[in-house]
């Protein structure tokens, strides 16, 4: 019985386990040596074309930042529309269609955010390397990606009428909280 239940939720369990291991590693003694070990990667990032362009042309960096913000807006919009529907808001809109179509928009906006984020990170690689909040953001982003693709999506791919409404609400609240945390830690980088 327990085994079959675990089999049904294997993606959820594997993702949760992976994230727990990641968090344990993040707050363990091992993080210091690993942090030093990745410094050359960040030094290299600043020497790449993205890094040089980001540092040389302030206007280009700012335009990419604006693209990052637009991506954030669209991602947030898709999260609010989809999770709002799961929470019982926006009645009249078909839940299945809203959830599926929002996921496509979400995936595209996430791709835009990652692409612009890499460019920005290359431009200020050494600076962010020393910022704890940057690592918090990466942790939150990893959680977000794992949550969306390995927990939320597999559950929402089922027949939504068969899924417990409280599970849908729990998924929606978790999703909103996770992506708000990703956005807020991103904003926090700007103040550090």
């Amino acid at each position: 019985m327990i085994f079959s239940l675990m089999l049904n939720y294997r993606k959820t369990l594997c993702s949760s386990l992976f994230f727990l291991l990641l968090v344990s590693f993040f707050f363990s003694e091992l993080i210091s040596s690993s942090h030093i070990a990745v410094l050359p990667v960040f030094e290299w990032m600043e020497t790449t074309w993205f890094g040089v362009a980001g540092k040389t042309w302030g206007a280009l960096f700012a335009v990419v930042q604006a693209g990052h913000l637009v991506g954030l807006g669209v991602l947030g919009g898709s999260v609010i529309a989809s999770d709002g529907r799961l929470l019982g808001l926006f009645k009249g809109l078909p839940m299945r269609l809203v959830v599926d179509r929002c996921h496509s928009v979400f995936a595209w906006s996430l791709a835009l955010l990652v692409a612009t984020g890499i460019f920005m990170a290359c431009g200020v690689a050494i600076k962010i390397y020393y910022m704890p909040v940057y690592w918090y953001k990466m942790l939150a982003l990893t959680l977000g990606v794992l949550f969306v693709f390995f927990i939320r999506k597999p559950i929402l791919d089922r027949d939504l009428d068969q899924v417990n409404p409280w599970l849908l609400r729990l998924l929606a609240i978790s999703s909103i909280m996770i992506w708000f945390t990703v956005a807020a830690t991103g904003r926090w980088i700007g103040f550090s």
Partner: peptide, 30 residues
């Protein structure tokens, strides 16, 4: 921060509606 993060609510949703009008997303939703 509030000004920037509210982008997710205002601009994000506006863009979803614009994408629907253009037929680039939500094409099968009223």
């Amino acid at each position: 921060s509030t000004h920037v993060l509210t982008l997710m609510l205002s601009l994000g949703i506006l863009f979803l509606i614009d994408l629907r009008m253009l037929g680039w997303a939500f094409a099968d939703i009223s």
